[in-house]
Design a protein around this nucleic acid. Structure first.
Lengths: 238, 238
DNA sequence: CGACTTTTTGAAATGATTCAAATGATGTGG
DNA sequence: CCACATCATTTGAATCATTTCAAAAAGTCG
């Protein structure tokens, strides 16, 4: 990981763009150009950044914070599709295929974003093919994530779905801890339920079960320690 | 739709590549170059084209026929992720992020494919940015399809899921008919079940129900007439 | 036409959901 | 820093829909 020059309060130093995966192949001069096109904005926890069905007309890149992307089903439930954090982007569907937002995006915590207008981004894509390549990479990764989600949701074994999600969070947000891996959950029980298509009660019951088995340990409502990662992995494949 | 010069038995005339969406922005000269890189192959119904976990090392474009892309869950069930037909491609994950196949691909009928090696395709991407753009477009569409699938699978109302799939098939494969839209189903009842995460018995029961309501009419096992498309659409949103 | 495969239908079992209540966590103001 | 009010989580019991297993009916193909 290369050191970057950034000690400003809101990460406004130009070289920050270097840390955004889709711009990572650009050289400093090109980064400068990208940075000149960026508009910054801040959102507080709970604020809506994009509403399903609207057309934002910009690519949004997360600079700091976490957001959830979800849809409201007609039944009133929300289905969470993605959790985006630093370096992730969204709004690409509007830029690439002129499609209105397929999900609502809401800040899970205080969040800073960078926006590049449709026009500017299309120019960038043409000028720097390396960006296209990086975007394709990320779209592929997102496809894999959704393919896994579809498989996971077709699985009858609900415990395996919970294990999957806990491992996903552990890989993304986990930190070493004396008892295992400490994970700050980005979502409440209800959020987790909406992420994997269950009810909050079921999530609660199954997580308690995993705790009884000594596989995880809950620390308050917002943290979990993965005590036995292997057991968690095993419980997915049966 | 521009007329193309093609009267050969297996569509081997060069200009056929013009009909592949990702090459559609290229001019005749460029198409020629692409065509020179293509290796053709045929598969019979039921044959495996790619096995999950293998690395094919080529982009595969379907020239004629239909295939299903699926995974085996540990429970032994198969989860179908995509049905690809003429003009669709797969194998892009290996080329773009060096990822082994995330699904098995099997021919649903006799199928002709075109293959372009990883190396050649990467050269094409660099040389013709228009291809990158088209690939991104298609990846976006695939994301939308999977996002819909995830939402659909989290919905409790099973009848709505069946209606969704029937409409999807109607849009892709439907033909006008005196009673409505005649659809040649690409999948058996069991296949449909594996596509939307249900059992074949449930699919059977719910389709019979739709028939009793006069919304569809089954013609043997492999065809369905959508009699009342609006009612089908309504049943999704409630 | 006849053998085989696929689909349909029936009845019982299973497991998540629902609704309700209790317990536990969190954050605020005194 | 504690007490209280609020919100989230857990737990319990009944319900409901899909699954499962089994058998009959219908469709397909040589």
């Amino acid at each position: 990981m290369s050191k970057h020059i950034c000690n400003c309060e809101h990460c406004q130093h130009k070289l920050c763009a270097k840390n955004v995966p889709i711009f990572s192949l650009l050289d400093p001069e090109e980064i400068e150009k990208v940075v000149s096109l960026i508009v910054r904005r801040k959102y507080s926890k709970g604020e809506i950044i994009v509403l399903e069905g609207s057309s934002l007309g910009s690519l949004v890149i997360i600079n700091k914070g976490r957001v959830k992307a979800f849809r409201h089903t007609y039944e009133g439930k929300e289905q969470i599709l993605y959790i985006f954090s630093e370096g992730d982007f969204f709004g690409e569907k509007n830029l690439i295929i002129n499609q209105k937002a397929t999900y609502t995006v809401e800040a899970l915590e205080d969040t800073n974003i960078c926006m590049i207008s449709k026009n500017d981004f299309q120019i960038l894509l043409k000028e720097y093919p390396a960006i296209s390549y990086k975007v394709m990479e990320e779209l592929c990764n997102r496809l894999i994530r959704l393919e896994n989600a579809v498989e996971s949701m077709s699985i009858k074994n609900v415990e395996a779905r919970i294990s999957s999600v806990l491992l996903e969070f552990a890989n993304k947000y986990g930190k070493p801890h004396s008892k295992g891996i400490l994970v700050e959950l980005p979502l409440s029980r209800e959020g987790i339920a909406n992420y994997i298509g269950l009810t909050r009660e079921t999530v609660s019951r199954k997580m308690s079960l995993l705790q009884d088995e000594g596989i995880i340990e809950m620390v308050g409502n917002k943290k979990v320690i993965i005590v036995d990662k292997e057991a968690l992995e095993d419980s997915i494949n049966h």
